[in-house]
């Protein structure tokens, strides 16, 4: 038993215990942030930062719970049908919008109340330097010469990068083959090894190779240029208006206790606006553009509306046709 007690003591010493004054009758116990992805991914790291800051603002610990599986649908479905007291919240991303129409078991946007908008990490269009492609116009020219010959590395159908690649295809009016890989690391490996000529990950995934001159980032699909790659134009600047990427928002079930949701939402927005949080998140390459509940809801509904025709075109609508 002695070994076990030492272990317990050592571990408890390591865990955060945040205590503080509690205003309303929420929160009455630790709050869980359900991350529908495995531990260690980009979203997971960002969510852990948010959890840490939110727990400071809330005066109650916020525990990250990873429940990966089926592109996030499993965990989100359980959240939507689960605890309504406001002690459980979760995150939705671009892939969630697509999953609604791709997976009969996935929950839909109207089953959630959006508490806050975190930000959009813009997708990029990158090409191997040895293709000689430097701008989107180069890409359009080359792809029109030889339709379908170029290959793009992206994630599985319905994933953020896949959706981005499909959107770019439509916007640029060209054709290339979408090759699915399991996550962003294999995507980067694929373009570096030359299995594909193009890739559509996030800025952080390829910025080092861009600077080293191995990969050319042709354009960023953000509202403005990315702070890590100030030399790369946006799609809009290049003449192809398009904004897409990993959109992240925090949600509770639609019928969650409104008073609790308000307290939680406020704490989250405060956390997102916190200076030290912004600095850490930015250093890690995340774009943070916080929005409150109303704005965020409108944004997500609009995204849902805009993405539907694209998903339909890309053959990703299998259920819940409109």
């Amino acid at each position: 038993m002695s070994l076990k007690s030492i272990v317990v003591a050592a571990l408890s010493a390591l865990t955060l215990s945040v205590s503080g004054a509690v205003a309303a009758d929420f929160p009455t116990k630790p709050v869980s942030l359900v991350v529908p992805w495995p531990a260690g991914g980009g979203s997971d790291i960002l969510m852990r930062m948010i959890a840490q800051k939110t727990s400071e603002k809330l005066g109650q610990s916020v525990v990250v719970v990873n429940q990966p599986g089926a592109g996030g649908s499993l965990a989100l479905r359980e959240v939507a049908d689960g605890d309504k007291s406001g002690h459980t919240f979760s995150m939705i991303a671009t892939g969630f919008i697509a999953e609604q129409y791709g997976n009969p078991n996935a929950p839909t946007l109207d089953q959630f109340k959006v508490l806050a908008f975190v930000g959009t990490d813009p997708a990029i269009m990158a090409a191997r330097a040895d293709t000689g492609l430097k701008t989107l116009d180069d890409l359009v020219r080359k792809a029109k010469e030889d339709p379908g010959k170029l290959r793009n590395a992206n994630d599985q159908p319905g994933g953020t990068s896949y959706v981005a690649a499909s959107l770019m295809k439509l916007k640029l009016g060209i054709d290339y083959t979408l090759v699915p890989y399991a996550g962003s690391a294999p995507v980067v490996q694929a373009i570096l090894a030359g299995e594909t000529q193009l890739a559509t990950p996030s800025v952080t995934d390829l910025i080092a190779q861009h600077e080293a001159g191995e990969i050319n980032i042709l354009a960023v699909a953000g509202v403005e240029r990315h702070f890590l790659a100030p030399d790369v134009p946006t799609f809009t600047e290049a003449g192809y208006p398009l904004v897409t990427g990993t959109v992240r928002a925090l949600v509770v079930p639609a019928d969650a206790d409104p008073a609790a949701a308000e307290v939680l939402g406020k704490a989250i927005v405060d956390a997102l606006n916190d200076e030290s949080f912004n600095k850490t998140a930015r250093d890690a390459g995340f774009t943070i553009t916080p929005m409150g509940s109303e704005e965020a809801t409108a944004f997500m509904e609009n995204l849902d509306k805009e993405m539907y025709p694209v998903l339909l075109e890309a053959g990703l609508v299998k259920v819940r046709q409109k």
């Binding site: 952080t204 910025i207 080092a208 190779q209 600077e211 080293a212 250093d283 890690a284």
Partner: peptide
């Protein structure tokens, strides 16, 4: 993730 948070971009230039 840890490297990035400390301002170190892993890659050919590290």
């Amino acid at each position: 993730g840890a490297l990035l948070i400390h301002g170190l971009q892993p890659g050919p230039q590290l």
